[in-house]
Design a protein around this nucleic acid. Sequence first.
RNA 1: GGUCCCUUCGUCUAGUGGCCUAGGACGCUGCCCUUUCACGGCGGAAACACGGGUUCGAGUCCCGUAGGGAUCACCA
Length: 466
Amino acid sequence: MPKVVTRFAPSPTGFLHIGGARTALYNWLYARRHNGSFFLRIEDTDRARSTDAAIKAILSGMKWLGLDWDGEAVSQFDRAARHQAVAEEMLANGAAYKCYASAEETATLRAQARESGAVFRGDMWRDRTPDAETTKKPYSIRIKTPRDGETTITDEVQGAVKVHNATLDDMIILRSDGTPTYMLAVVVDDHDMEVTHVIRGDDHLNNAFRQAQIYRAMKWDMPVYAHIPLIHGADGKKLSKRHGALGVDAYAEMGFLPAAMRNYLLRLGWSHGDDEIISTEQAIEWFNLGNVGRGPARFDFDKLDSLNAHYLRQMNPANILPMIENELENTIETTLSDIERKRILRALPSIVERAKRLPDIIDASTLYCNMRPISVTEKAANMLSEQGSLMQDAANELEAITDWSTEVIKAAIMSFAQARDLKMGTVMQPIRAAVTGGAPSGDLVELLEILGQKEVLGRLGDQANA
RNA sequence: GGUCCCUUCGUCUAGUGGCCUAGGACGCUGCCCUUUCACGGCGGAAACACGGGUUCGAGUCCCGUAGGGAUCACCA
C-alpha cells in the first residue's frame, strides 16, 4: 500500500477560517494516523486576489492550531510552467483544444443557455477549425470532455456519486494569458505531489467530476476523495465573512486553547462512539474517514466553551500565567510584581475552576493584584453599609492574628461568629464584600490567606473608612 | 433553472434490520453539597421531517414529497 499523502490547499484571499481549519485538521490527522505526509499548498494562481498578508495569516493560524506540515509550504503559482506543459500535452494528444471565443462572447452564450435551462458546455470551438484570421487571435485551452457515459467518483464520506458526462462542460484549463486555471493546477499538483487522499469541503464535490476528466485524459490515477460537509453558523446559515465567519486568530483572541479548538473541530462532524473529550494523541489513533458525518454542522460556542473549560482545568498554573500575563498587565495598567505573581500562581487552581475562557482568568486574577482601593459593586456596597460595623469588628479580629494561615484565619472567624451567636456565613459576607468588592471569587479563607494579612487589612480599612 | 449532496433531542452526535420503552455530550432544568460564585453528585424535560413501500420486524433498505445546502467563471 502506497504511503498516505494529504494536503491542505487554501487560497490566500483571507484569513484561515473555521471551516478551513477543520479541513486542515482532518487532513493532518489522517496523514499522522497513517504515518504519511501532510503538505501545505497555497493556491495563489489568482494573482489579483492573493495577498502576502493572507498567506501569513494562514500560516500563523496553522501554527497556533498545532498543525505542522511537512516540508515547505508550496506556492502553486511557482509551478505555472509545469501546469502549462500539461495543458500543451493535452492539446497535443487531442484531449484539449484551442478556444477562440472571447470572454464576453462566452458570457452571453452562458446566460442564454441558463435562460433556456440548457447545459452550457463552452464548446463553441470544440469541433471547429479556425481560419487563418482567427488563428492570430488569443485563445484559451479547453478540455475535451467525453459526451457519453458517466463519471463516478468514490467518495469516502459521500459514497459513490455518479454524474452523466453530458452535463459536464469543456472547462478552460489554460487561460488566454497562458496561466493555468484552478481545475488544472489542483490536478497536476496533487498528481505531482503524489497526494493519495483529497479531503476537502463538499463545495468541491461537483468539481471532482470535472477534475476527473483531467486525470482520465492524462491517464493518471485518481486520489481517494472525502468531501466533508461545510460548517454553518448557529442559525443554520452558511458561514461567510459577512455572517459570523471568523479567522482562527479571532478564536485565539477570545481566549480559546488550541487543544480545545482541535477537540471541538474534531467532534464537529466526526465521532467515535460516545467519546467527547478526545486528546490529539487519541485522535491520531482513531481518526478515520468513515465516521465523518454527512450533514452540515452548526457552530456552537457553548460547547466550545465547555471544552475549553475542561482543557483549562487540565493545565498547570505555571503554564497558564504566561498566557495571560500581557493582558493582565494591560488591565491593571502596571507590571506584575513578584508578590502578585506568586499570589496568582497559588490562586490559579481555584480560579480556573470557574473559568471558561482566558479573559475569565484575567478578570479573576486582578483580585490578587494590589489595586487599592478596589472598585465595589452596588450589591457589595449595600452589604457594607448594612454590616459595616460587623466587618469592622471582624477586621480587628483578623488584625490580631500573628501567624497568617488558613487554619488560623478560619478559626478566628469561627470563634468570632460563635461569640456573637452568628453563623459563619453571616460574618463572611461583609468581609467578602470589602475584600473582593463583589467580584466573583472562590473560597474566602483561601483568598484571604493568599492575599496576605497586610493587603486584607488594607482593603478592609478602605471600606471601613469609605 | 440544471447537476450533485444532506435530513435522529435547541445544538454536536451514537445508531450499519431485531440489543432502541432511541444512548452520550453541550445547553436548559429539579434536588443534594455549600460562606458567595463555581466545580461535583443524583434526577428531569427534549429527537428518528412527512408519505408510501420492502420485510415476520425499519431510525436503520427502496421510492416519492417537503425542507436545507453546494455548484454551474479565462475565482479558488
